[in-house]
Design a protein around this nucleic acid. Structure first.
Length: 920
DNA sequence: ACCTGAACGTA
DNA sequence: CGTACGTTCAGGTT
């Protein structure tokens, strides 16, 4: 069994950089890297946007760039001694001659891909890496033959392919690197991984594929037979031959199906069998990894405009580039530190330098324990050396030394600091002195990215593609990598975080965002970690009762709905509902959507009012009950062993600066409906505590609007403590405050909030069910009275167009390039975003400050009460007996003082034994 | 196995 | 044709 997937040295302190050519010649073991050229070129093509990679002459190079980058990463990580790339030809193969539809039905090759394979072959030639293609055969056969030859010679073989047929090659000596997505995530598949995924050993994979079929190759399998059924048969009869011999003993519909398609299966098996005994034009020994042809690389990479890749290539092969800036992306080797003295020596070596000590990256390795994670080792990475400390070794001196340093002010860089804290906590370890978390600094620089994974950030900001070697984050497949590979992977991640941190620092400074990172987000991460670890208590009794009630309500509504139309239908399927509502019952059509006509709640309500059809009433009742039931079911599943729910807050998801909550989402627990509030009633005070306390800001977004706009009228209203909507209503409608009717008040309320979202007259008319003209007049009257608001809103968009971004009161930016888009829809959306972001974002800034204040004050006063939840403008705390008054006072004080606005920040507080009771 | 759209809960 | 999210399901595609 080959286990080492990345180089590990235990005593490499003196050799931080190891050119591959040296690695290739020392030691007796040979490692062959075989690459499926076309499939990886395609992966690279789809992983990188073609528009970002082209030469001045217009030749697209995204596939070439991605392929080369992937190859360099592979060579660096896997340290092969031999490398070869196999390509398909366009000519017919023995497979397409037997079965003309083979690989048919594929989409046409995109235009941008043309010519890139030829360029890849040229790059390989310049790198002195042999490429092989053989007329009449596929790359897969070449690969299989090479793997067989390598294995026969006693070598380790790594096959890089995006084609699943390669799985049949896996043995103790042969691993397949199969890209999961793109080219940055290529986990190794070994026999265990194949079995885990397909339930058969690798040598039976082709049997399975023959039964199931392979859409990519246009090979249909047996209808109704998926991997599970196929694996069952194969394991029962000892392979496909056994299955075919026992055709008649397989019963059921699938058995019939199999007998009807047995010829397809035989054909599939013939076609997916890979040849392992081809005559190849290149001998195994000729694939030895040599130094690249420097001149050829220079010339070719000049033409391709590959400057970063050129540097990486020469760094990798140990050739010094002229004027090396010392920033070569070479991951330092690591040592596994096993005693306190060695750890201290390593740590001291990093702090002895003159001037300010350079930060050390801290990457925590962890394993899942139930719903929680627990640290198993810590990787410490500096620019030129790295150390790994395993936890739980029972070496107390080592543990003490590590704990001392982790807690100390020694500057540290992390990626996902909060997760590190949560993993370290169960081992009694803290983490101090963290000066950067690249998942957060990356977010502050560019808050609307989808992902802040290290590979993504690295690709975007450093232009370095690096492949995650294996199990990294939680929830990923643990392929049973040896510790060494995991450590090397963690060191690599730490190293990339270190590079990113250095890259981000000047960007943050330039934006004036240092304080957002250092004084807001990083301290907040520690507060959030504690909240997440604490969780909130759930009442089992209430949960079970509610489940039962909702199930009964759902079933009753479903039965009544079926009775109303005389047959069954999937009430959860919009498609089937459309059929029933608009075709069967012939009800009037609702608003058009992509897939037909909407069946959303508002439309159903309108239809019910119009027609009074019983089905509609029952459908709506069913929707509400099943929705709630599903929510309760999900909550039930996320109750941990301690009887509490531990959500996870994301600090880098909402582009405005808000937190988001997931697993489960505790920021969307119902509150409006009576039934919904029963869900909120399941959240109760924990044993030993006195009550829950909920504190929320009153109208924080409107107050921010008043502050930002400086509108005298709004400021006065808040200063006088008036009912804001009543006050505004009296001015807009020109009546005395006492004469503002509830209809007037709700119109004004809708408009006030709408303005903060970039509401249009059209939208307002829709919401208030008035004419557009009426809405327009309302807006005009509003702005006549509150001109500051109009001027502010207008100014925000203008300024954002000039600057390219909006800012919150703390200087949190959101970039809005679409403000200058020629696409009207995009542009107007960006305008609404520009209106909303400073308001929503400033509210987020404020409550984040409040959380830091509350946490600090609880701590300072030595109280045992604790913060549990944040819901955008609300905090929920668990109060220790006797601390209620003190907690209430400090929460009000800290939330109220979280920002210095032109209007007061009002805080409402409630207490109770459940979250619902504490609300108001 | 993965993705998208519709729907709906919150602020 | 107000903003910001997360989750679920169905239905469609690997």
């Amino acid at each position: 069994m080959m286990t080492r997937l990345a180089p590990v040295t235990e005593s490499a302190k003196t050799a931080p950089k190891t050119p591959v050519s040296a690695a290739a010649t020392h030691g007796g073991e040979s490692r062959l890297l075989v690459i499926d050229g076309h499939s990886m070129a395609f992966r690279a093509f789809y992983a990188l946007p073609p528009e970002n990679f082209s030469t001045d002459s217009g030749q697209h190079t995204n596939a070439v760039h991605g392929f080369t980058s992937m190859l360099l990463t592979m060579i660096r990580q896997q340290k092969p001694t031999h490398v070869v790339v196999a390509f398909d030809l366009d000519t017919p193969t023995f497979r397409s001659l037997e079965y003309t539809e083979y690989k048919g039905g594929r989409n046409k090759t995109p235009e941008e891909f043309y010519g890139q394979v030829d360029l890849i072959i040229k790059v390989m030639a310049a790198m002195n890496i042999p490429t092989i293609s053989v007329d009449g055969f596929e790359a897969d056969d070449i690969i299989a033959t090479l793997a067989a030859q390598g294995e026969a010679a006693g070598w380790d073989v790594l096959v890089v392919s995006g084609d699943r047929d390669a799985f049949q090659l896996i043995t103790d000596k042969v691993l397949v690197l199969y890209p999961k997505k793109g080219i940055s995530d290529i986990p190794p598949m070994d026999a265990a991984a194949v079995e885990a995924k397909y339930f058969v050993p690798p040598n039976r994979y082709s049997d399975l594929a023959a039964l199931v079929g392979e859409t990519a190759d246009n090979l249909p399998g047996v209808p109704g037979v998926g991997p599970k059924t196929a694996a069952k048969w194969i394991n029962l009869y000892g392979g496909l031959d056994g299955v075919l011999e026992n055709l008649d003993s397989i019963g059921g519909k699938v058995g019939e199906s199999l007998r009807a398609h047995v010829e397809d299966v035989r054909r599939n098996r013939r076609l997916n069998h890979l040849l392992r005994d081809m005559e190849l034009p290149v001998a195994l020994e000729d694939t030895v990894l040599r130094a690249p042809d420097r001149e050829a690389v220079e010339e070719l990479f000049d033409a391709l405009q590959f400057n970063t890749l050129r540097k990486r290539l020469f760094d990798l092969f140990g050739e010094e580039e002229a004027a090396d800036d010392g920033e070569g992306h070479e991951v330092p080797r690591h040592e596994v530190v096993t005693d306190a003295a060695a750890l201290k020596a390593w740590l001291d070596a990093g702090t002895n330098g003159s001037g300010a000590p350079a930060p050390t990256a801290v990457e925590v390795l962890s394993e899942r324990v139930g719903l929680m994670t627990e640290a198993t080792a810590v990787a410490l990475v500096r620019a030129d050396s790295a150390a790994v400390v395993e936890l739980g070794t029972a070496d107390e001196a080592l543990d003490r030394e590590l704990a001392r340093w982790l807690t100390s002010d020694a500057p540290k860089v992390a990626h996902e600091y909060k997760e590190a804290l949560k993993a370290l906590a169960p081992r009694g370890l803290a983490l101090g002195g963290v000066v950067d978390d690249t998942s957060i600094s990356g977010y502050l620089i560019q808050p609307d990215r989808r992902s802040y994974d290290l590979p993504d950030l690295s690709q975007v900001h450093l232009k370095v593609t690096f492949a995650a070697a294996g199990s990294t984050g939680a929830g990923q497949l643990d392929l049973g990598l040896e510790d060494g590979a995991k450590f090397a992977d963690a060191v690599q991640r730490g190293y990339v975080a270190l590079l990113l941190s250095g890259h981000f620092a000047p960007m943050l400074a330039e934006r004036g965002a240092d304080h957002l990172l250092g004084e807001l987000e990083l301290p907040l991460a520690a507060v959030l970690a504690r909240m997440e670890l604490t969780g909130i208590e759930i009442s089992r009794d209430r949960l079970d009762t509610l489940m039962a009630d909702l199930t009964a309500a759902m079933d009753a509504a479903q039965a009544a709905a079926f009775a109303a139309i005389g047959h069954e239908v999937n009430l959860g399927s919009p498609k089937q509902l459309q059929q029933v509502l608009f075709e069967e019952l012939g009800l009037p059509k609702t608003k058009k959507i992509k897939t037909g006509y909407t069946t959303d709640a508002a439309s159903l309500k309108a239809l019910l009012d119009k027609t009074g059809h019983e089905f509609l009433a029952q459908l709506m009742a069913h929707r509400e009950a099943s929705k709630l039931r599903q929510m309760v079911e999900t909550l039930k599943k996320s109750v941990a062993d301690d009887g509490r729910i531990h959500t996870t807050y994301a600090q880098n998801v909402a582009a405005t600066g808000r937190l988001s909550s997931n697993n489960p989402n505790l920021q969307n627990i119902p509150v409006r409906s009576e039934e919904g509030r029963r869900v909120r009633d399941m959240f109760v005070v924990g044993a030993g505590y006195e009550c829950l306390l909920a504190a929320d800001y009153s109208q924080i977004e409107m107050r921010i609007m008043a502050h930002l706009s400086g509108d005298a009228g709004l400021i006065q209203a808040y200063a006088e403590g008036e009912d804001l909507h009543r006050y505004v209503g009296s001015h807009v409608f020109g009546v005395a405050p006492g004469e503002v009717t509830s209809a007037m008040r709700s119109k004004v309320k809708a408009m006030s909030y709408g303005l903060a979202y970039g509401l249009t007259s059209f939208g307002l008319s829709k919401q208030l069910e008035i004419s557009v003209d009426e809405a327009r007049t309302l807006v005009k009257d509003y702005f006549d009275r509150f001109g500051g608001v109009r001027d502010y809103l207008r100014g925000v968009v203008e300024q954002a167009r000039i600057d390219g971004y909006t800012s919150t009161i703390e200087g949190r930016r959101r970039y809005l390039p679409d403000l200058s888009s020629t696409d009207r829809q995009l542009r107007e959306l960006a305008e609404r975003v520009a209106l909303n972001s400073p308001i929503q974002g400033s509210a987020a800034d404020i409550i984040k400050h409040a959380m830091l204040g509350v946490a600090a004050e609880l701590d300072r006063q030595g109280l045992k009460s604790r913060m549990l939840l944040q819901v955008h403008d609300e905090l929920v705390l668990e109060v220790w007996p006797g601390e209620r008054a003190a907690v209430e006072a400090l929460v009000v004080a800290q939330m109220g003082a979280a920002a210095d606005l032109l209007v007061p920040l009002e805080v409402q507080v409630g207490v109770g034994s459940s979250w619902n009771d504490a609300g108001h």
